[in-house]
Nucleic acid binder design. Structure first.
Length: 421
RNA sequence: GGAGGCGUCGCAUAGUUGGUCUAGUGCGCUCGUCUUGAAAACGAGUACGCCGCAAGGCGUCGUGAGUUCGAAUCUCACCGCCUCCGCCA
């Protein structure tokens, strides 16, 4: 959520930002509503001040008749307050609704565009994998190598169900162990985060109110989070962090749950789009400073790219255009790996920064001895997610005989084995 | 799942027959006095948010509603913690 003061003082910037993101929101109306809110607030507070003053008099006064009279007077003032408060609440409700819809302003450097079609490729690494034999997709490869069982997955879980088994399970654990080693060297504090979270956390990150249909809910009104970003942002909610403790660098593992309600036709086969998967997330809270945000954003994105390079997976970096940015995001990169069977790059990672949009909702501040308390900046990026990354590994390293060559860095976690066959 | 107890401005506490609580006290911390320096002692300060140019005002005693002229104090719901029993990786 943006600061209402910022919105008032930068009306045009906010309007243009919303327009670029393709979000319809009436800022003029919001400001008018805010004027009304402030006016009503002042009136209610003035009346309260009067009640407080007179109540004080009542308690000190000995004259019973005067007391009764004052109490009578306050009774009517109280009715008036009640009426005005109801009015104020109505205004506040409308105000909140709109405030939740006002999107964060995209950075100047973000390319303009309407949808994901307009996302901009800004670099590629590695050669697109070519084969001198008829290549297979990961489904065929993994089924043949008995790494995965979709039939029983569907029998047990339903649509998009899967079991990883044998070397499918082993390769996953190898990826996890390697990721732990790789990102563990980058000065993060490791976490295992809860996936069942309270509703407030989803509002905090910006996954609610829009996007509700994509989130699982429990019968107790809690939600299953689709990324450790959600619990990790909630971790410091309503806290004031000493400035010298910044930046907070967290590396959090969690199971992730996404209904994929809006994607029924997409990636219906294979291991690309699962309702349950596992992810390690890089998350940083830093000082409220644009340059800091940019610096760490580049860093965590680079971390992921280097991770793919160390595995030898060809990728490209995509700069997300204004129309494809989420409500809370200022800027975002996707890292996409080359998927030979689809003859295209597919998203494996997403790195974004938010300025204080999320921390304002979560009320995460920091304070130095002299300065005032400010909202921290937040940013995050995927570190690794399974099983999706297995798709890239298996397809890019497949051999003519249908076996899969294990990336060198993973071999020590698979008993030194060179091939899955 | 059952029974009981408890949530006070960093920490520890006072305050629960509603009314100078404008939340007291101790510790810690900050500044000052004193001192060659430090300690001690003494003095002052020390939660947060919102409105306002300011003076000042409003709100928050886990959270939210309610009763009342007036709520830390009474009522209800929720959240959390503790103890005991039951169950359980």
């Amino acid at each position: 959520m943006l600061d209402i003061k910022f919105i008032r003082e930068n009306k045009e910037i906010v309007e243009i930002g919303a327009k670029k993101k393709g979000v319809k929101v009436d800022i003029t109306h919001l400001i008018a509503l805010d004027d009304e809110r402030l006016k009503q607030l002042k009136e209610v507070e003035d009346l309260r001040a009067e009640v407080n003053k007179v109540s004080n008099q009542i308690s000190r006064n000995q004259d019973a008749a005067l007391k009764t009279q004052l109490i009578e007077e306050m009774r009517s003032v109280k009715d008036e307050i009640k009426k005005k408060e109801e009015n104020l609440n109505t205004i506040m409700e409308a105000w909140r609704q709109i405030m939740l819809q006002v999107p964060n302003v995209p950075d100047m450097t973000v390319p303009e565009g309407k949808s994901e079609e307009d996302n901009k490729e800004i670099l590629t690494w590695g050669e697109k994998t070519k084969f001198d034999f008829p290549s297979k997709d990961h489904i065929e490869l993994m089924l043949k190598l008995q790494m995965v069982d979709f039939e029983r997955g569907v029998k047990v879980h339903g649509f998009r169900g899967y079991f990883l088994q044998n070397d499918g399970a082993e390769l996953s654990w190898a990826v996890w162990n390697y990721a732990r080693e790789f990102f563990g060297a980058k000065n993060f504090i490791p976490f295992i985060a809860p996936a069942i979270v309270r509703k407030e956390n989803l509002y905090g990150t910006g996954h609610l109110p829009s996007g509700a249909e994509d989130i699982y809910q429990t019968q107790d009104g809690d939600y299953l989070s689709g990324t450790a970003e959600i619990p990790m942002m909630g971790y410091h909610s309503n806290e004031i962090i000493p400035k010298e403790e910044l930046p907070k660098r967290y590396l959090a593992f969690s199971p992730c749950y996404r209904r994929e309600a809006g994607a029924h036709g997409k990636d219906t086969k294979g291991l690309i789009r699962m309702q349950e998967f596992f992810k390690l997330e890089q998350l940083i809270l830093c000082e409220a400073n644009h340059e800091e945000s940019v610096k760490y954003h580049e860093e965590i994105n680079k971390n992921y790219e280097e991770f793919l390079e160390s595995l030898g997976i060809p990728y490209r970096r995509l700069e997300i255009c204004t129309g494809d940015l989420k409500t809370a995001q200022v800027k975002s990169y996707d890292t996409e790996a080359w998927i030979p069977s689809q003859n295209q790059y597919r998203e494996l990672s997403s790195a974004s920064y938010y300025h204080d949009f999320q921390s304002r909702r979560f009320n995460i501040r920091y304070k130095s001895k002299e300065g005032p308390s400010l909202f921290v900046h937040s940013l995050n990026s995927t570190a690794v997610a399974t099983p999706r990354i297995l798709v890239a590994i298996v397809e890019n390293f497949q051999q003519a005989d249908g076996s899969v060559k294990i990336p060198e860095v993973l071999r020590k976690y698979m008993g030194g084995k060179e091939f899955i066959k």
